[in-house]
């Protein structure tokens, strides 16, 4: 595998893509949103149990490539228990990381496990795979009823 590919398909990412966490609809879910990437047909539904400002539980379902599944899986782990504002900030940082913002890459450790997605920045065609779940989460938090698309 070339170095770039190794950076993209890190062991953690492969492992999450094969066995995604929180791949379910929580019984307590009170919000959900659908995400869709019309360019490739990837779909993602994010379910939330939101109480006040807190994300008490989160799950997702859908179909997509390894990057989009792993990203969705790890996203659910990192935002569970966070406030809405904290989740939004995390998405902002994550987005900057995968689009190759140097400052974001330098401070990637703040993103915890999500830092493994830094390799995506070398593959611009795959940024949307990595951010589909996050866009969908944002839509669920904003309680939008229209499916969110990566092309908006």
């Amino acid at each position: 595998m070339t170095d770039d590919l190794g950076q993209l398909y890190q062991e953690v990412i492969l492992e999450h893509s094969k066995a995604p966490r929180n791949y379910r609809k929580p019984e307590s879910a009170n919000r959900e949103a659908e995400g869709y990437n019309p360019l490739c047909g990837d779909r993602c539904t994010v379910f939330l149990d939101v109480e006040g400002d807190a994300i008490k539980d989160i799950g997702f379902q859908g179909s997509g490539c390894a990057i989009s599944r792993a990203s969705a899986s790890m996203m659910t782990q990192s935002v569970k228990g966070k406030t809405k504002a904290e989740a939004a900030r995390l998405f902002e940082e994550f987005h900057r990381l995968v689009t190759g913002d140097e400052k974001a890459i330098a401070s990637a450790q703040d993103l915890g496990k999500l830092a493994v997605f830094a390799g995506v920045s070398k593959f611009p065609a795959r940024v949307k795979c990595a951010t589909l779940a996050w866009h969908t989460l944002q839509s669920a938090l904003e309680n939008k009823h229209e499916p969110v698309s990566t092309e908006e």
Partner: peptide, 26 residues
């Protein structure tokens, strides 16, 4: 076990261009 997009990315690094996706025929 390999999504077409992941295959497309891996092949690209081998210099091989193929199309992956729904081919405008959903």
């Amino acid at each position: 076990n390999v999504h077409p997009h992941d295959l497309g990315t891996i092949l690209d690094r081998e210099g091989i261009a193929i199309r992956t996706g729904h081919h405008c025929a959903q």
